[in-house]
């Protein structure tokens, strides 16, 4: 288990070297900078995956009321809150090199900005509750509810009539990617997904340890009648005598 970060690092280096060895993409304004898609596409897919997983964990929490499920849901939210801005920023770089400016108000771009805002709102909601069960319940309900605007913004908005988009959305489906780029995007998707899953599992493990520590502390005090050596036992006058 301790070697997983090392393996991920090696895979990441191999993936990065591959992206630089691949030939320049055709039909791009700045062909050599089209390599940003190796990072941009996996980040978008991973964000989508974590948002759906977050809603699923929210549903599971509503069913079980288990704080361990809430830990998983929080971990999904945090991962989505990391990868959504990464998608947005890599997309902005792509927009700059392909279409000439960082921001175009393209429906796909705008839609993902709103997804970032949704993630920000979900994080804000989690941080507003003291009670852990209320926090978990509200967060779970919001995770399920935000699936409606998320699906609209990601899959519907840019396909609406009268909403023109320059963002390609069917390159993979139509098989328009050449072998270098197809394999590269798939490979980077696997590598970044493994990295994201490792981060997620670390966060879940830390959260579960936190829950267990909270339980253990209570037992420790009850069983041994042990009082901590810290804390104020007698008031002290800190004013100096004249």
């Amino acid at each position: 288990m301790k070697r997983i970060p090392v393996y991920l690092l090696v895979l990441g280096v191999i993936g990065t070297v591959y992206t630089f060895l691949s030939p320049d993409a055709e039909r791009f304004m700045t062909p050599e900078l089209a390599r940003i898609v190796y990072w941009h596409l996996p980040c978008a897919f991973i964000t989508t995956g974590f948002v759906i997983a977050m809603a699923w964990q929210g549903f599971q929490y509503m069913r079980t009321k288990s704080l361990k499920v809430d830990v998983k849901q929080a971990a999904c939210l945090e991962q989505a809150a990391i990868f959504a801005p990464l998608t947005l920023f890599t997309g902005m770089i792509f927009s700059r090199v392909q279409w000439g400016s960082f921001w175009h108000w393209d429906p796909k771009q705008t839609g993902f900005l709103f997804v970032v805002l949704l993630m920000g709102a979900a994080v804000a909601l989690r941080s507003a509750f003291q009670d852990e069960h209320k926090r978990a319940a509200s967060s779970a309900a919001y995770s399920i509810a935000l699936l409606i605007p998320f699906i609209f913004l990601t899959f519907v908005y840019d396909r609406l009539p009268n909403v023109p988009s320059v963002h390609p959305s069917s390159t993979i489906a139509k098989g328009e990617m050449d072998a270098w780029y197809g394999f590269g995007v798939l490979g980077m998707f696997v590598i970044i997904t493994l990295f994201a899953y490792w981060l997620y599992s670390q966060r879940v493990a830390a959260g579960n340890l936190g829950l267990e520590a909270a339980d253990y502390n209570g037992q420790d005090n009850d069983d041994r009648s042990y009082t901590a050596p810290t804390g104020v036992v007698k008031s002290v006058d800190v004013q100096q005598d004249d």
Binding site: L117, L118, I148, L153
Partner: peptide, 13 residues
């Protein structure tokens, strides 16, 4: 404040 903050992104569609 929170109701507005979580509501606005939800109302975008």
């Amino acid at each position: 404040l929170l109701a507005g903050a979580i509501g606005l992104p939800l109302l975008l569609p």
